[in-house]
Simulated scan of single mutants.
Amino acid sequence: MNTHVTAATQPPAPSFVALASQSSSTSLTRVSLAYLAHRINLYLRFGEPAYHVQHDRWRRVAAFWPASIFGRIRWEANDDGATRWQLMVMQACTSLDAAQRIPGVQPGARLLLHAEGERQVRAVLSCIDAIEALGIAPADVLPTYWRSLGNRLALRGPLPVYTAGQHAAWRVGKVLS
């Protein structure tokens, strides 16, 4: 099996042999990603993984430190066109934390937002684009904002706008605690 490991901003990535021998009590959350042209695209929209492991041309795994927030998009199609649009914003946790089981996410994660269908996914993507236009990384956004956004989507109400003022207050409160 061809395997390629790339490191991010955290400490150097362990070897594939070390990764394969790790138990489920590892403190990193592993997220499976895939790409098969015109059929499936399972990728990260945002987030800073500790490292990536490339299994082959189609499959890879991204690992996240506890409390990291990331967004994953799932797009599937058949010969007639797109059959599934899904966007999830999740927060990584350890195997000892309360977490939800999510396919492709080990040991699990806190689900902050779940958008299903083209209309909802496009609405969330426009909110993410607006956050990035403010110069804010979506992974640094207040977790309760993602929950509020998900609740508003479910109610089909007006979507909340994330402001630089909210972000500044969140960052100050995070530093003080």
Rank of each mutant, 00 (worst) to 15 (best):
Q91F: 03
L19V: 14
I40S: 04
L134H: 06
A123D: 06
W170G: 06
R74T: 15
A63C: 10
V105L: 10
A123S: 08
S25Y: 12
E116G: 07
R72F: 09
A82N: 06
A67N: 11
L149S: 10
G104Y: 07
G71H: 09
G108S: 08
P107T: 15
V124T: 03
A62R: 10
G150Q: 10
S24E: 14
L28R: 05
I128S: 08
S177E: 12
A37I: 04
A82L: 07
T163H: 03
L113R: 02
G81I: 04
S68E: 13
V31H: 07
V121K: 06
C127K: 14
C127D: 06
R72I: 15
V61H: 07
P66W: 01
I136H: 05
V141A: 06
Q91N: 04
Y145G: 02
Q91W: 03
A8R: 05
W75K: 05
R60W: 13
F16W: 15
Y43Q: 14
G104R: 06
A99P: 00
S15Q: 09
V124C: 03
V31P: 08
L111Y: 01
A20I: 04
A67C: 12
P66G: 03
R30L: 09
Q91C: 08
A82E: 09
C127Y: 04
P158N: 15
Q86N: 13
S95F: 11
V141F: 03
P12K: 00
S148V: 02
A37W: 02
D140C: 05
V89W: 13
